[in-house]
Design a protein around this nucleic acid. Sequence first.
DNA 1: AGCGCGGCTTTTC
DNA 2: CGAAAAGCCGCGC
Length: 104
Amino acid sequence: MTLSKFAARVYQLTSEVPRGKVTTYGAIASKMGKPGASRAVGAALKSNPTPIVVPCHRVVRTDGGLAGYGGPAGIGKKAKLLREEGVAVRRGKVDMEKFLFTWR
DNA sequence: AGCGCGGCTTTTC
DNA sequence: CGAAAAGCCGCGC
């Protein structure tokens, strides 16, 4: 498994997010001690060695926008999925003030 | 409120 | 080993 320590931590934290809530790349990066590694988090997530244990669709941008998924098409699809989980997605954006989950 | 620019870290070819 | 991309963030206009 070519899994770096960094990536492993990202998957760990992401899998910790309960259903009906979302987190941000910056938050994950910050929890690792690297607040500027927001991009690295996305890069690690895109590798996604365990798509079942790591619901990357629960990870959104700082402004609440659904990021990534290889393209805007995946965004709309995941946005709908998040709504089913209980997350209010508006125009492809999540209610950060109510569904933003944080570890600390 | 919307658009544009540079910067930080990790992964992959 | 070296370079480029990536699911970003913050600030300025």
